[in-house]
């Protein structure tokens, strides 16, 4: 693929991506304002005291006394300068709140994703190569099991087994507070805390990728060019590597692209169970607190992540399958 062509493709896709992100922000902006109550009522509710003056002061402070279209325009204007606004509730710029918690979520979803994609594809390939045999059935059943189990329930059961009964792994948090570790000791500590949450989140997606990989492996294995290779006496291992796997990965990649956003959704549940300090939980708390700016900021971030991920998927597609032109 020529560099110029690639550049043109990227430019076109970027314009589209910006439009999509903008539309999502406007949509969510309107949507969350439909929720009953506002940040002032949450603060009143949690303080257990209020008077009309207090409520009015809060609403003025939050800029809620202006008409909604004006608030939207102000928000969009700020967005144009990449200013995600200020969380009055947390007394922090939204960008800072998100940047503080984004690494945790990226670590969690990234690890889960790697686990899911490598484990899933490996299992799928293994099953496909032994189709109809016990190993295939075992893998299929395993994948179905993870797929059919509520994600938070898996988390609870894992905690029950590995934290409560066996006492092997910590059940919550991202690292041991107060331990003041640094360097490798810190990384090891985080790693220990990461195991259960990423496993919980990863297993569900692992199941999906395994089934997907198996199905598409089988499908590709039936196709003419594979048969030809086999007839030519190419060793089976090489056929799998050179022909089948490469093509079978396509649907997995497509799907992973579409699913990027779902990982964030799942991380709300996992972050709740494991008290993982990420943006999924930040978003949920912001929703309950009607912390509009923070919530919109998180939506913006996930939308950008999804769009970027889809872009990467498209590029990867072109790499894996030379027949596909980036159009």
């Amino acid at each position: 693929m020529g560099a110029a062509k690639l550049l043109r493709f990227l430019a076109a896709r970027s314009v589209k991506a910006v439009i999509v992100v903008l539309a999502i922000v406007v949509f969510q902006f309107v949507l969350i304002r439909l929720a009953p109550g506002d940040p002032a009522s949450v603060i009143a509710g949690q303080s257990g005291a209020a008077d009309p003056l207090f409520m009015q002061q809060l609403r003025e402070q939050f800029g809620l006394d202006r008409p909604m279209h004006e608030q939207l325009l102000i928000y969009l204007r700020d967005m144009a300068t990449l200013d995600l606004g200020f969380s009055h509730r947390q007394q922090q710029p939204v960008a800072r709140l998100i940047l503080e918690r984004l690494p945790a979520t990226l670590l969690l979803t990234g690890t889960a994703f790697l686990l899911a994609i490598t484990g899933g594809v490996a299992l799928g390939v293994m099953a496909a190569r032994r189709v109809g045999r016990p190993a295939d059935s075992a893998i299929t059943v395993l994948a179905l099991t993870f797929y059919a189990t509520p994600i938070f329930w898996v988390g609870l059961i894992l905690v029950l087994i590995f934290s409560v009964w066996l006492e092997w792994l910590p059940s919550f948090g991202m690292f041991t507070v107060g331990a003041e570790l640094s360097g490798w000791a810190h990384a090891l500590d985080v790693g220990k805390h990461l195991i259960l949450p990423s496993l919980t989140l990863g297993l569900f997606f692992l199941a999906i990728y395994a089934r997907l990989a198996r199905a598409s492996m089988l499908e590709v294995a039936d196709q003419d060019f594979v048969r030809t290779a086999r007839a030519k006496g190419v060793p089976e291992g090489r056929i799998v590597r050179a022909h089948v796997l490469r093509n079978a990965l396509l649907p997995v990649i497509t799907f992973a692209g579409i699913q990027a956003g779902q990982l964030v959704g799942g991380s709300i549940l996992v972050e709740t169970v494991f008290a993982w300090p990420g943006i999924g939980r930040l978003a949920f708390d912001a929703l309950l607190a009607r912390d509009y700016a923070t919530l919109l900021g998180v939506f913006f971030c996930t939308a950008v992540m999804v769009v970027v991920f889809n872009l990467i998927t498209d590029l990867l597609y072109a790499v894996v399958d030379p027949r596909v032109e980036v159009a």
Binding site: L31, A35, G261, Q262, A283
Partner: peptide
């Protein structure tokens, strides 16, 4: 499809 479905469901039910 760009909006994570679970997140959207949570927001809708809350609203």
């Amino acid at each position: 499809q760009t909006i994570p479905s679970f997140v959207l469901a949570v927001v809708l039910v809350a609203i």
